[in-house]
Deep mutational scan, measured.
Amino acid sequence: SEEELEEFAKEVLRRGITIIVNGIRITEVEIFVKVLREILEKR
């Protein structure tokens, strides 16, 4: 749901943790923004 997305976004921003994806360091915020864009483009 959109509320869950908002909560996830807030949690990500609070933690600001960097994770490893395919050997490249990407912040969770960047991943969230990318996923959010993909979701919005599909609408």
Rank of each mutant, 00 (worst) to 15 (best):
R37Q: 05
R14E: 04
E3G: 11
K34H: 04
E4F: 13
K10P: 02
I17F: 14
I20L: 08
I17W: 15
L5S: 01
L5F: 07
E3S: 12
V35I: 14
I24K: 07
G23T: 05
K42T: 09
E6W: 15
E6C: 15
V21A: 06
V21M: 10
E30P: 05
E2Q: 13
I24N: 04
K42C: 11
K42E: 08
I39R: 05
I31V: 11
E3H: 12
T27F: 09
R37A: 03
A9M: 11
I31G: 06
V12A: 07
I20N: 02
R14T: 04
I20M: 09
F32H: 01
R43S: 07
I26G: 02
N22I: 06
I39K: 02
N22S: 04
I31C: 08
R15I: 03
A9D: 01
F32V: 04
E7Y: 09
E4R: 12
K34I: 07
E6Y: 15
V35F: 14
I26P: 04
E3K: 13
V33M: 12
R14Y: 04
V33N: 01
E3M: 11
G23R: 07
G16A: 10
V33I: 13
E3W: 15
L40K: 03
I19W: 05
V12G: 00
E4S: 11
E30S: 13
L36Q: 01
R25V: 10
I24V: 10
S1K: 08
K34Q: 09
L5E: 02
I20Q: 04
V33F: 07
V33C: 11
K42M: 12
I19C: 03
F8P: 02
R43I: 14
V29Q: 02
I24W: 13
L5K: 02
E2N: 12
K10I: 08
K10E: 04
E3R: 13
T27A: 05
V21C: 11
K42S: 11
R43Q: 08
L36V: 03
G16S: 08
I26N: 04
L36C: 06
V29I: 10
E41R: 14
E38L: 14
E4Y: 13
I20P: 00
I17Q: 07
I39T: 03
R37S: 03
L13A: 00
E3A: 13
L36D: 01
K10A: 08
I17G: 11
E7C: 14
R14H: 04
I19H: 00
T18K: 12
R37V: 05
G16W: 15
A9F: 11
I24T: 08
S1P: 06
E11T: 09
E2C: 15
E11D: 08
I26H: 03
I39W: 15
K34N: 06
R25L: 13
V33Q: 01
I19R: 00
I31Q: 14
I31R: 05
E4Q: 10
V12L: 15
E28V: 06
F32M: 10
V21S: 02
R43N: 07
G23S: 05
V33E: 00
E41D: 10
I17E: 08
E7K: 12
G16I: 15
T18Y: 13
S1G: 08
V33D: 00
T18L: 14
I26Q: 01
E4D: 09
S1N: 09
V21Q: 03
T18Q: 12
L36S: 00
A9G: 02
E38P: 01
K42Q: 12
T27W: 11
L40W: 14
G23C: 14
V21T: 03
E7A: 14
R25H: 10
L36W: 07
E30G: 09
K10M: 09
E6V: 15
V29K: 02
E11K: 13
L40G: 02
V21F: 14
K10D: 01
I20R: 06
E4W: 15
E3Q: 12
R25Q: 09
I20T: 08
G23D: 03
V12F: 11
T27I: 06
V29F: 11
E38T: 10
G16E: 04
F32S: 00
I24H: 08
V12D: 00
F32N: 00
L13E: 00
V12Q: 04
L36G: 00
E7V: 07
V21K: 03
E41H: 11
E2R: 12
I24L: 13
E41V: 07
I26C: 08
F8D: 01
E3F: 14
L40C: 13
F32W: 03
E11R: 14
F8T: 01
E41M: 13
I39E: 03
K42Y: 09
E4C: 14
I31K: 09
I19L: 08
I20Y: 08
K42R: 12
L5H: 01
I19K: 00
G16M: 14
I19Q: 00
F32L: 15
I26V: 07
F8G: 01
I17A: 09
E41T: 10
N22L: 09
L40A: 04
L5N: 01
T18W: 14
A9I: 15
T18H: 12
V35G: 01
V29R: 02
A9V: 09
R43P: 05
E7I: 08
R25I: 10
E38R: 10
V21G: 02
L36Y: 03
V29T: 03
E38F: 15
G23I: 12
G23E: 02
A9T: 02
E30W: 15
I39G: 04
R37T: 05
E41C: 15
R14Q: 05
E2H: 11
T27G: 03
E11A: 13
R15M: 06
R25F: 06
T18R: 13
R14W: 13
G16K: 06
R15S: 07
R15W: 12
V21L: 14
E6M: 15
I31T: 09
E7D: 07
E4M: 11
N22Q: 06
E6G: 04
E6Q: 12
F32G: 00
V33K: 04
G16T: 04
R43A: 10
K10N: 04
E2W: 15
I24P: 04
V29D: 01
E30L: 12
T27N: 08
L13W: 08
E2S: 11
S1R: 09
K34A: 09
V35T: 05
R25S: 07
L13R: 00
R43H: 10
T18I: 15
K34S: 07
E4H: 09
V33T: 03
V21I: 14
R43K: 10
I20C: 09
V35C: 06
I19T: 01
E30H: 13
L5G: 02
R43T: 08
F32A: 03
R15G: 05
I17D: 06
I17R: 07
F8I: 04
L13F: 15
E7L: 09
I26R: 03
V29W: 15
G16P: 03
V12C: 07
E11F: 07
T18P: 13
I19S: 01
E4I: 12
G23L: 13
L5D: 03
I19P: 02
N22K: 07
V33P: 00
R15L: 10
L5P: 01
I17Y: 15
E11C: 15
E7S: 09
N22W: 14
E41G: 12
E41F: 14
R15T: 05
V35S: 02
R43E: 05
E38C: 15
F8E: 00
E30I: 10
E7H: 08
G16V: 14
E28Q: 10
E28N: 11
E6N: 08
R15K: 06
R14P: 00
R43F: 14
R25M: 08
V21Y: 15
R14I: 04
L40E: 02
I39V: 05
V33L: 12
L5M: 06
V29L: 13
N22R: 08
I31P: 05
E7W: 13
I20G: 01
K10S: 04
E4G: 09
V29C: 10
L40P: 02
K34R: 11
K42F: 13
L36R: 02
I31H: 11
F8L: 08
T27Q: 05
E2I: 15
E41P: 04
I19A: 01
E2A: 14
E28C: 04
K34D: 02
I17V: 14
I19V: 10
E3P: 07
V12K: 02
E11P: 01
N22P: 03
E38M: 13
V35N: 02
V29G: 01
V29M: 05
R14D: 03
F32K: 01
E11L: 10
R37F: 05
E11W: 14
K10H: 05
E30R: 10
I39P: 00
A9W: 14
E38W: 15
E30K: 11
R37N: 03
E6D: 04
F8C: 13
R37M: 09
F8V: 02
R14M: 07
I19Y: 03
S1Y: 13
F8M: 03
E6F: 15
V29N: 01
A9L: 13
A9P: 02
L5Q: 03
E7Q: 11
L5V: 03
E30M: 13
E28G: 06
N22V: 05
V21D: 00
V21P: 00
G23K: 04
I24Q: 09
R25A: 08
K42L: 11
I31L: 09
A9E: 01
